[in-house]
Amino acid sequence: MISPALLGRARLLAGPEVSETAARGLARATARPVERGTPGDGPYVYVGASLPDAPRGADLVWFHSVNAGTDALLDGGPWPRTALLTRTVGRMGERIAQYVLGWILAECQSVPEYTALHARAEWRRIPGELVAGQTAVVHGIGRIGSAVAARLRACGIRTVGVARTPREPPPGFDALAAPDEPVAARWVVAALPLTAETAGYFGADRFTAMGGATFLNVGRGATVELGALEGALRSGAVGRAVLDVLPDEPAAPGDPCWRLPRTVITSHSSGITADDDIVTDFTACLRELRAGRVPPLTVDTARGY
């Protein structure tokens, strides 16, 4: 835990990913100037998306990530033992939930099919599909997964979260299931962080068990084995796929991912962080630290989330 006294004398640095608008908000929250570039001596707080080599030392007391995912930070080498790591979530859960719901409704209203018919100037009626009463399975029951479940549940969709240990369903979920427990679902949503345990989590076995469900990934790209997904799409084990994240980003025009059947790829845009998100979450963490409490947005660097 950072002592309020140490926090009070720490300098505030911001990485290039932090806009001038966000930097002004951080300066107001801390009542101190925001510095850019490489830090000198003395304790400091760093706000950014990546941690340069120079600040990776004992003088770093707190790093606040502008992103919700911190796997890239933790993959860069051992995390400084005494440095706190927090993350930005903001209204990301709300944005991602809206994204998931939008694609689900588009599918039920045959938007892809009508788009193709329009391109051919072909008049043909396609019955709509009701979402109410159908089931969505959400892998990842943290803040983002819970927000997705709550939005789907509000539309009458039964929501089943996946958890490794039995517990009461968190808000937004009707029930929980074990990772490999069979659940007949119309949609499967991936909202997992990337850790050693979740890398390649969605492989051939899990895709085969989906029974024709639509798969949507709004978590991390490396949780999915794209070759296994392609096989499942071609066999019909996965009906459609919507991928907002990929193992390697950005995807080049010749990348095979663009040729996956019945798949739409969006450019890691379902939950783009806004300046207000960064400032709001940083300020909330600062308030907790000044009160001597651990911020809820603290990342367990050993677990990776």
Rank of each mutant, 00 (worst) to 15 (best):
M1S: 14
L7F: 03
A10T: 07
L12P: 06
A14S: 13
E17S: 15
E20N: 10
A27L: 02
R36T: 06
T38D: 13
P39F: 07
P43D: 02
V45Q: 00
G48T: 02
P52L: 03
D53T: 11
P55T: 04
V61R: 10
A68W: 05
A68K: 08
T70L: 06
D71G: 11
L73K: 09
L73H: 10
D75S: 15
W79R: 11
A83L: 04
V89S: 11
G90V: 10
M92Q: 14
M92V: 10
R95G: 04
R95D: 03
A97P: 02
A97S: 09
Y99A: 07
Y114V: 11
A121C: 09
E122M: 13
E122T: 13
I126N: 05
P127C: 04
P127V: 06
L130Y: 08
V131C: 09
A132F: 00
A147D: 07
R151K: 14
L152K: 12
A163F: 07
R164G: 13
E168A: 15
P170V: 06
F173M: 06
A177K: 12
A178V: 08
P179K: 11
P182S: 09
A184Q: 13
W187V: 15
V188F: 01
Y201Q: 04
Y201S: 06
F202Q: 01
R206H: 06
M210F: 11
G211Y: 02
G212P: 07
G219I: 02
L226M: 12
A228H: 05
L233Q: 04
V238A: 14
V238E: 03
L243Q: 02
E249R: 07
A251S: 08
D255N: 13
T263D: 00
I265H: 05
S267C: 10
T273K: 07
T280A: 15
T280F: 08
A284C: 06
D300L: 07
T301K: 07
